[in-house]
Design a protein around this nucleic acid. Structure first.
Lengths: 116, 116
DNA sequence: TAGATTTATCGTTAAATCGCGATATACGAA
DNA sequence: TTCGTATATCGCGATTTAACGATAAATCTA
């Protein structure tokens, strides 16, 4: 029960669901996600930890950056099933479409092409 | 997004998930659920409203009793999919097994065979 | 109609959640 | 080692949530 609830709780916040949907496009670092969602870095970091603890996302260090991607589902069968569902669900979400469009610009942050 | 979040939130509480799992066995009135879960009647009523608003359960009046059952899924595709998943998931939950065993005794409440 | 039973709603309290800024930690470059 | 960047953690308010008891509404029975 606990593992199931953990996945449900992780997916009951719109911003966390957006993170999952964005990661369907490509793996992302925290600063890219922060940029696209328009949240504080600490907030994004906390969301990512909740998603990771639920078995929904994975992370790997790449130099200074921590790269997040969708989990393979080996941690949690519930997470695996929900990720599969989410690969179809919410594709028509308007806000999500806008954020996806903003992804390339946010990616520039990682290539050091833009300073702020 | 809103409808999806509503279903996820509805399923992020252990007691609400238990209600869904119990309703897989048979339709139940509020007092039966209250008895099995060991919660106050007002608490159960509130949980049921959240489940109903999410499209997970339905209700029909039967005399004095309000009978709750699993929804057919026509209200929400998300609810429908989750109910299908939940028909397999969590069947090995220990607490849930105990509650299921307590169902017949709780059902007596509705047949007026027991007073308290 | 009056009383008993069942359920829904209201108001309150304690705990959990989400947001933020500040700070600590980890890494790469100079 | 020192600085700058990226990320994680801590601590704090504001909001939401879950629990309860009290009360209102609906239904059946006498």
């Amino acid at each position: 029960m606990k593992a199931f609830i953990q996945v449900m709780k992780a997916l009951s916040d719109p911003n966390r669901v957006r993170v999952v949907k964005l990661l369907q496009q490509k793996e992302l670092c925290v600063c890219e996600i922060k940029e696209v969602l328009g949240l504080a870095q600490s907030t994004v970091s906390k969301h990512l930890k909740i998603l990771e603890d639920a078995g929904l996302v994975e992370r790997k260090r790449q130099g200074t950056w921590m790269i997040y991607s969708l989990a393979d589902g080996s941690e949690s069968a519930y997470a695996e099933a929900m990720l599969l569902k989410l690969s179809d669900w919410l594709d028509d979400d308007r806000e999500l479409a806008i954020m996806r469009k903003a992804l390339p610009a946010a990616a520039l942050l990682r290539t050091c092409a833009v300073k702020n």
